[in-house]
């Protein structure tokens, strides 16, 4: 089987400082990869290099495109990469306001990607937006309200709806549950798990929270100082960590 995403040797420096170094892995269709590690270990740097938000110093990010099969997204043209960003890729930011247009209604936020790929029927766009609000458990009656009137958890769910409406094949998420209350986190996780399963989504999730990867990720990478120190099936890594740093990470969570 062709990997949906094949990452090879991704390296990014900030000046002399390492952001992430020599990261490689394959992600197969329908798989969810978790990336964990302490603050500053390079998780967001890696995610942003993969999603085309940062240009890596070295390495390839090969995506199995619908039209042309596997293509290196680092070297493809910018219009092509931005098109992927609006269609087959989705990016869920930690802070919903980074991923939403706060001055635009919930319906407009969800509809934007549809309009970006050429949908021009208002009734259809609104219908799909309303469907998606319901799928992320937001009352359809809120379709014309701005996200500023939404709670943090609702904003995050709206951001997810806005990303998933075009049926992407790969979702990048950076701490999607960070900054939310524990009960709100649990509900969001349930929702994400349902969506991933129902849509057969592939996803890469960056998080501090091992409970998030336990629930969502099939596989896990542990990062330290910009490098992957351990990778494997989630349950294996969490239940029987091999690397001393992973052991520390897991045990520190168990103590909580």
């Amino acid at each position: 089987m062709t990997p949906l995403l094949s990452v090879q040797g991704i390296t990014k420096h900030y000046g002399a400082h390492i952001g992430c170094a020599d990261v490689s892995f394959d992600l197969y269709p329908g798989e969810v990869m978790g990336i964990v590690g302490e603050s500053g270990s390079g998780k967001s740097t890696l995610l942003n290099c993969m999603a085309g938000h940062l240009v890596p110093d070295a390495g390839q990010v090969v995506f199995d495109t619908r039209a042309d099969g596997p293509k290196d997204t680092v070297t493809m043209s910018e219009p092509e990469r931005r098109m992927l960003g609006r269609t087959d890729w989705a990016f869920v930011h930690q802070h919903a306001r980074d991923g939403l247009r706060m001055g635009v209604s919930a319906g407009g936020n969800v509809g934007e990607r549809l309009m970006a790929v050429g949908e021009r029927h208002y009734g259809d766009i609104r219908g799909k937006a309303t469907d998606w609000l319901e799928r992320v458990e937001i009352d359809a009656a809120r379709v014309d309200d701005r996200p500023t009137t939404f709670s943090g958890g609702m904003q995050q769910r709206l951001q997810i709806a806005r990303n998933l409406v075009t049926g992407p094949r790969l979702v990048f998420m950076d701490e999607p549950t960070g900054g939310l209350d524990v009960s709100v986190q649990a509900r969001l996780l349930d929702l994400l798990r349902g969506l991933v399963r129902d849509m057969g989504l592939s996803a890469i999730i960056v998080t501090h929270d091992l409970a998030v990867v336990r629930l969502l990720a099939d596989r896990l990478m542990v990062m330290k100082s910009g490098r992957v120190v351990e990778a494997g099936l989630t349950d294996q890594v969490l239940d029987d960590p091999q690397h001393a740093y992973s052991q520390l990470l897991v045990s520190s969570v168990l103590q909580v």
Binding site: P79, R82, G107, G108, G111, M115, A116, V117, V143, D144
Partner: peptide, 18 residues
């Protein structure tokens, strides 16, 4: 430069929804 004009229709969408 990239002809990404979806946003223009978001403006019209907002108009109709309001």
């Amino acid at each position: 430069s990239l002809e990404e004009y979806g946003l223009m229709h978001v403006k019209l969408y907002e108009d109709i929804s309001r």
